[in-house]
């Protein structure tokens, strides 16, 4: 029992780091600014969440664990605000999103 939780934590850590990499690949592959934003939000939600969960499982219920939760809350409350501010500023600046044509499937 004492072995399994840190092991699960390690798995979560690896999965989270993997999702961060996927998000970064998306940041490079996506065609325009607005679609890149979606790739970045994969990093900020699933990547960050899994990494923090993994660390939390390794830390246990200590002060360190509470700080990890605090970091998670900070990311989850603040990052959408920054994303929204970016998207709105880009739209106000007149940056046109590349949209898919309505017919093609």
């Amino acid at each position: 029992m004492n072995e399994i939780l840190p092991f699960l934590g390690g798995l979560g850590l690896l999965a989270g780091a993997g999702f961060c990499l996927v998000g970064a690949v998306g940041l490079l592959r996506m065609p325009d600014f607005y679609t890149r934003m979606h790739a970045a939000s994969v990093i900020e939600t699933l990547g960050a969440g899994l990494i923090l969960c993994g660390l939390l499982l390794q830390a246990g219920f200590t002060l360190v664990g509470a700080k990890l939760l605090m970091i998670g809350l900070l990311i989850f409350f603040a990052s959408p605000t920054a994303s929204h501010a970016l998207a709105r500023a880009a739209l106000l600046r007149g940056l046109k999103p590349k949209l898919a044509s309505p017919e093609d499937k």
Partner: peptide
């Protein structure tokens, strides 16, 4: 609501 939309990957609230 807007923050939840933005937090969910695949959708970003642009004007609120």
């Amino acid at each position: 609501h807007a923050n939840s939309i933005t937090l969910t990957p695949g959708t970003v609230a642009v004007e609120v």
